[in-house]
Design a protein around this nucleic acid. Structure first.
Lengths: 117, 117
DNA sequence: CGATAATGATACGGCCCCGTAACGATCGGG
DNA sequence: CCCGATCGTTACGGGGCCGTATCATTATCG
């Protein structure tokens, strides 16, 4: 089940989806925020600030700030870890799951429309 | 030549490429800038500020500013249209073509690595 | 010509993000 | 028990992007 995609198709797909995102999304997320959001929703919990920072190769404040802004949008939430109160566990939300699902729909729909290279 | 991609695959692809972009890219472009860059390199010239603005559904200053910053990065260049000196023609550059090609490589490489849904 | 329209750039005020450095809270080993 | 290590957050200074409104330049039409 290898996904065959040609460079020209890849670029067209990337462009179409980004055009959708520019027009469609209310507040569009940064590249970092998208990476964080998808990591939270695709990888197994639990997720922590330092874990995400290491996973993305960025500093911790980047994660904290991204969680702040995405939290305001309702895409994620935070909870103190009761076993080790230094830790913060990042949790998924309904709105976040919907947003991720919406992105998946965009990509699959645009992929389906791609003609030959 | 329809590109079959399942929602789970789409999300994993999106995530992997965004992780690459976060780690890899020197100054990462915004969603709008990516949309503009790919439009310039995928659609037939000539490109103008107002044309791009209409194409993306954004205001002209958005395009002007994006061209400013992408111009500093050497990804695009501008030239006055000699026939109608009100117009500015946006031109491709070698560095821009390389950046677009690099993005295509990223996407195709990550797509190839995708396992079954 | 002169008035009007169109094009791209600029000014302004506001908001968000960055990286570095520091901080408070909490845990854990000696 | 205490002191160092760890975790997440916050402060600071700087830079970028946004939308609206306005501007200078150029073309067009009466």
């Amino acid at each position: 089940m290898v996904l065959e995609i040609k460079p020209t198709q890849a670029l067209r797909l990337w462009r179409e989806v980004h055009l959708d995102l520019v027009r469609d999304t209310q507040p569009d997320l940064s590249v970092r925020q998208i990476a964080i959001l998808l990591t939270i929703y695709l990888e197994l919990p639990p997720h922590t600030v330092r874990g995400l920072a290491a996973r993305l190769g960025v500093t911790k404040p980047v994660i904290t700030r991204a969680l702040d802004s995405m939290g305001k949008l309702g895409l994620v939430s935070r909870k103190r870890d009761e076993l080790d109160k230094r830790n913060v566990v990042i949790q998924r939300t309904v709105a976040g799951a919907l947003a991720v699902e919406h992105l998946a729909d965009l990509v699959t729909a645009r992929a389906r429309e791609l003609g030959p290279a």
